[in-house]
Write a protein that binds this DNA or RNA. Sequence first.
DNA 1: AAAGATCTTGACGAATCCTTAACGCCGACC
DNA 2: GGTCGGCGTTAAGGATTCGTCAAGATCTTT
Lengths: 225, 225
Amino acid sequence: MNTILVVDDDPHIVRALAITLKGQGYTVVTATDGQSALHSAAQRPVSVMILDLGLPDMDGKAVISALREWSSVPVLVLSARHGSSDKVEALDAGADDYITKPFGLDELLARLRALLRRRNDSSEEVTLVTTSSFTVDLDKRQITKSGVDVRMTPTEWNILDILLRNPDKLITQQQLLTEVWGPAYAKEANYLRVYMAQLRRKLETEPGNPRHLITEPGMGYRFVP
Amino acid sequence: MNTILVVDDDPHIVRALAITLKGQGYTVVTATDGQSALHSAAQRPVSVMILDLGLPDMDGKAVISALREWSSVPVLVLSARHGSSDKVEALDAGADDYITKPFGLDELLARLRALLRRRNDSSEEVTLVTTSSFTVDLDKRQITKSGVDVRMTPTEWNILDILLRNPDKLITQQQLLTEVWGPAYAKEANYLRVYMAQLRRKLETEPGNPRHLITEPGMGYRFVP
DNA sequence: AAAGATCTTGACGAATCCTTAACGCCGACC
DNA sequence: GGTCGGCGTTAAGGATTCGTCAAGATCTTT
C-alpha cells in the first residue's frame, strides 16, 4: 500500500487532504513544518511527499534539498506563488511536480497517480525462489543448480513458472494443462507426466525421489520450497 | 546525451522549441502528427517526449496510450485546454506532466530537467559493459573488440542496447520486436534471426558458437557477460 | 542523381522441441 | 493373487524453430 506524506502549515488543508487521500485508499502521514517532515520521511518508507512551500520554520526548497541528500522519494509541491522562478527553483532543487493554489483535487490526484505509477514501474520486484538444490530467478528466467546454469524449454518453463509462483499450493492437472496447452488439452495428462519427469531430472538432486516437485496422486502437483 | 522528441502540429512552435532545446544542449527530434510521433519514438532511443494534445490525425490521449503499449519514455504534455478533466485524462493515460499554454519557457525547461533527472537516477546506468571478447560503452555508443572499433547500424544498436542493459536476463522475441520495430512487428521473428547473426559475426570471437549472445530456443535471447 | 549502406524478404539445411506410444512400476480394489 | 488405473521413464518420429546466405528494396549520403 502507498504511503503519502502531507506537509502543510495550515491544519485545515492537511486535514482535508488527508481525508481525500484516505478515501482513495492511501495511507496518510502528516507534518506541519519542515523539521518534522524530514523526520517523518526518515521514520518509514514513504511513496510520495506532498509539500507546501510556505512552511513556518524553513524554506520549502531547503526541505527538498535536505531530503534529496538521502532520499529519492517523489515530491509534489503545492504553492500559492504563481511566479515561474519559484517553480524553476523548486523543481531544480529536486521536486518532481508543482501545482499552484488553488488547485483542483482531481488534478492533484491525477498527478499523484502519475508519480506513483512511475515509481512502481522502476522498482522491479525481485522474484527469487530458492531451495536446497536449485535457485530460480523468475524475472530473468534463469535457473542455477549447484553453480551451473540449467536451460529450460518453453513448455518446461511455463509449467515451472506456475508451480513456483504458488509455493506449497496444490495445482490440479487441469489447471496446468489449460494454462500451458489451452482448454482443449485438459485431458492430456500424459503431457504432464513427461514434462514433470524432465523437470525433476533437471532440478532435483535425486529425480527418482523428488523433494520439491511433489505429485499428489489423483489430484495434481505441488512445489515445496 | 539526451534526446527530446517534440510533437506539435504548429511548425512555428516546433521550431521555437527545437531551437531553445538545442541551445540547452539537447538533441532534438520533431514530429507534427501522432503517427509519425509514434514511429519516430520507435526509431531511436528518446529521453523525453514533449507532446501537444491537439494533433490533426489522432487524439493526444490515444498517442499516449499507444506509446505506453511498448515504451515507458516520460511524456510531458502541452495543451491549450485548462480544464481539469483534460489534465486528469492525459495523466491517467500515461503522461508524466502537463503544462497549459501559454507557458513560460523556463518552467518548461525546469519540468523537463525534473523528468530527465528522475529517469537517470532511477536506473543507475551501468554504461560500460565488458566481456572476454568485447567492450561496449552504452553512453558513447562505442564498441571495441580486441582493440579495434566496431561499427553498428541503428537497428543493431537498438537490439544490442536492450540486451546489454539486462545482463543475464532473458528477453523474449516479442519484447525485442516491439521495442525495436514496434508492436505491429511482434511476429516477424526472422528479423531477429538475421540481426542476431550479424551481431554475433561482429562481436563473438566464434560466431558459430556464441558465448555471450545466447539463444533460448522458443523464447528469446540472453546476454551473458 | 548516383553510390553506398542498411533493411527486408525468402529459401534451405540443421538444430531443437513437442508429441506420441510403449513399457514397467506401484497401490487399490475385487 | 490377479486385474486395473494412475504414474514415471524412455525413445523415436514429426513439427517447429533457428542460423545462414543472398538478392532485391529502401533509405542515406555524397
